[in-house]
Simulated scan of single mutants.
Amino acid sequence: MWTTVQLPEESTRPLNPRQTVVPRPGRHRKPMTAPKTQREKASRRKKVLLTILTVVVLLGILTTAAYFIKQLIDSKYFFCARSVKFIPIDKTCDGTDDCAGGEDEITCLSSFKVNTTFPVRLRSASQVLQVYSPGSGWRSVCSDEWTKQYTQKACMQLGYTNKPQSTSVPVDTLISSLKTGPFAAIRPEARTQPIHKATIDRRDCRTGSVISLSCSDCGDVGFQDRIVGGTDAVIDDWPWQVSLQQGGQHTCGGSLVSPRWVVTAAHCFAGSKKELSRWRVVSGRTFMGTLGGSYVDRIILNGDYDPARNDYDIALMRLSSPITVGVARKPVCLPPKAFGLAAKASMTVTGWGYLEENVTTITQMLNPCSAVR
């Protein structure tokens, strides 16, 4: 007997089908690679550092080049921002508007003639406080009714606000021209008025003494031996000395008289040196440099300055913001009226200058001379 067996049809489906692996989010298979050696890692770090160093050096070169290019342009031309053009620096501050809106004539130095009398001053080596009124003239202020409040007010009116102090000086110890007056005394009811308006005339002082003011710690210097011809100096010993620079070049010396004002010579601003933005005042430096200078927002020449005779050769520069007073930056003391400087008195001149003829300017501050003959 024959039996017929029916075999299943041939199928292409595998007998052991594998399940499809669906990759999960956030999980990745890492390729099978050999780990990097320490030498390869060090080489890669070296390349990165070299690239960074190259970029820094290139940026430094570009910045330096841009700085010197700007200095060169600024020394020759003035940029008119409104009209977007350059004009020769000689055309600034010449009385003609070469820029739109007269930009080239706005930021220029000015002159001022004395047409009124400033009503407060110090007189003689005793620094006696005096006040002025048109009817009575100058009067020494008695110590009668004087308080610390008036000391602060008088020093502020004189332009000083640091360490104001006052003392009483007997009238009979003053110079002969001050012993006989006239005098003035404080009116206690006029506490809110300026010092010169808060006084009343007196024939003599009830206390027998007048007020002497010391309004700042100006003028403190270190002791040094000095010789004619110049010796090295450090800024800590002469902290009011500043360098006036135009276009990054030292042009003149000056002296701080307050945290915001510098006194210098009027002849420093001759020719094309009248435009304010060109000037910087570098303070607190023994060795000359151009970095860190203060901007200037006003230059005032004495209106009576005569270039031909150098009469009234004095000017003031106002800094855009006050400097910080410290060891290397401190105002010089202005001499009081009738200071009485004796002939052949010992004096010191400081600044960056020449030790002899036909040499370049030295970079360290000097004491060029020690006495006036």
Rank of each mutant, 00 (worst) to 15 (best):
N302I: 06
L319K: 05
K274I: 10
T3H: 10
Y354D: 01
P134Q: 00
P35S: 09
N310K: 14
S111C: 02
S111W: 03
I186A: 03
S294N: 13
S124Q: 02
W138V: 08
V84K: 12
I323W: 05
V169D: 01
K36P: 15
D313M: 05
S216G: 03
R318K: 14
K47W: 05
V57G: 04
K47Q: 12
K36G: 03
L174N: 06
D97R: 11
S11N: 05
G293A: 02
G271H: 07
D313F: 07
T51W: 01
Q152V: 11
V55R: 00
S166V: 05
S258K: 02
S110L: 02
Q130E: 15
V21S: 15
A265N: 01
A308S: 11
P164Y: 01
Q193A: 14
P322H: 03
K70L: 14
E105V: 02
M347G: 02
L7H: 04
T324F: 04
E103L: 10
G101P: 00
L7S: 12
T264S: 12
F86T: 02
V359Q: 13
R206I: 12
W238K: 07
L319A: 07
T20K: 12
G230L: 03
G95W: 00
L341D: 02
K85F: 03
V55A: 09
A184Y: 06
A270C: 01
G254R: 12
D201C: 07
T361V: 15
T3I: 13
L72I: 03
I362A: 05
K337N: 12
G159T: 08
V296W: 09
S124F: 10
I69G: 00
A81E: 11
G222M: 10
L316N: 02
A315K: 09
V372P: 04
Q193Y: 11
Q245V: 11
E10P: 06
C205V: 05
V114K: 15
R39Q: 14
D297P: 08
E189D: 14
L50F: 06
F287L: 07
T20W: 01
R285D: 10
Q130T: 11
L355S: 10
R123W: 01
V349Q: 08
S214W: 08
I61H: 04
V171I: 15
A184I: 06
I300T: 15
W138H: 04
L316E: 15
P8Y: 05
S370Q: 11
R39P: 01
S140R: 01
W261D: 05
S124W: 02
K274F: 10
W138I: 04
T324V: 12
M288I: 04
I300G: 00
I89P: 03
W352I: 00
T51A: 13
C93A: 00
V242Y: 11
F339M: 02
Q149H: 06
T116E: 14
